[in-house]
Design a protein around this nucleic acid. Structure first.
Lengths: 205, 205
DNA sequence: GAGAATCAATCAATCACTTGATTGAGAAAG
DNA sequence: CTTTCTCAATCAAGTGATTGATTGATTCTC
């Protein structure tokens, strides 16, 4: 086997370049939206020539698809952090809320970019093929959670899993429009969402 | 007094031109997003020269602001259609749902454009000044509805008006991402939202 | 009523970049 | 030496916006 050279490599591999390009593009999407995303701005942010960027990522379309893939990857990684076996629907829902809280704290740009790319997926089939299944996967996770919870009794039997899932994902997405003056505490939102679907607990107080 | 000439005028007034420009821009935003909005496309859609468009709407920024104003106007007009005096919180909530249903049916592009412009308002203060107060106004209407409902007993006393408002507006906004394969019946969604906040009705069945 | 003057509105042509992408030469790595 | 990677310069088309001439509508003067 070849030993690694003691000196740092002078050039980054294509994989490393693509990661850097993806991160720069994400940062620029936060600043200027997909609307204002320019290949030269990305190249400058990474510190490479525009032709170098095209060498590694041949078209702007491929570049946006790269961003979409990184978003998908991050969401998938986030979802693997917590096992769900043997828990009630309500317990799993709480895990989802904890994950969302983490996203808010650690990678706040995820939802913003996700929303923009899902919207773009309406018009651009290449992006749509990456983002729409991801968005639906996210939603369908909640459908499964609600089905589980209805079966184990932690959610009311009259809960419609699809409608309930939409309510949760819609709320979490809209929570991120926090640049307006309107505000609601994330804890209050989670509490309200739980009460929306759990059985009446009047006797428990 | 002068009688109006029987012939149609050869030229439209600036007010009429601006309306036509706004409508064409809205249609194009649906098709291509704000990202793909081009002044020449708008001029062509209206049937005027690009310089004529600039005569009536001097910059692209002013043009997007014009679109934002028309959206605001339409939402305001929609909100005036139904009186709310003397109704319980739950009854008003149902009126809001009827209005949303109307938007879905009659002017389905409103939510899509609203969402894009609110997102743009995060980055562009000119658009933000138009759209963000509108979005907040919409949300605060629900805060008022929930406060009213808590007082009159049609909503549970433990409902947090701000969190509940966010849940409703988020759900309605997300309902509009109907271009994915995920689907939930709008009636089921409304029913679920009502049950989320109304008192337990176990005794009523 | 006719013609001139004025202003608003319109147009084709053009400007000054901007943008995604390409080319050919050279540098770096193995 | 070969292959991969990088660069400055450039291409071709697009983009928001401008310019100067013309047209349409209205008002004024005789």
């Amino acid at each position: 086997m070849h030993a690694c050279p003691p000196n740092l490599p002078r050039r980054e591999s294509t994989a490393e370049r693509r990661v850097a390009i993806g991160l720069a593009a994400r940062a620029l999407i936060i600043e200027k939206g997909v609307e204002g995303l320019r290949t030269r701005d990305i190249a400058e942010r990474v510190g490479i020539n525009i032709a170098t960027l095209h060498y590694h990522v041949p078209t702007k379309e491929a570049l946006i698809a790269l961003v979409a893939e990184t978003i998908r990857h991050d969401f998938r990684a986030q979802a693997m952090r917590r096992p769900r076996d043997g828990k009630t629907g309500l317990e799993v829902l709480r895990l989802e809320f904890e994950e969302f809280r983490e996203i808010v704290t650690e990678t706040p740009e995820l939802i913003i970019i996700l929303t923009e790319l899902v919207e773009r997926g309406r018009r651009d089939p290449v992006i749509g093929e990456i983002m729409l299944p991801l968005y639906d996967f996210w939603r369908n996770q909640f459908v499964d959670i609600f089905r589980l919870g209805i079966r184990d009794g932690s959610f009311r039997p009259d809960v419609d899993p699809h409608a309930a899932a939409l309510i949760v994902t819609g709320t979490l997405s809209d929570f991120w429009r926090a640049w307006t003056d309107f505000s609601a505490s994330i804890d209050a939102v989670f509490t309200q969402l739980e009460h929306a679907f759990t059985p009446p607990i009047a006797l428990q107080g």
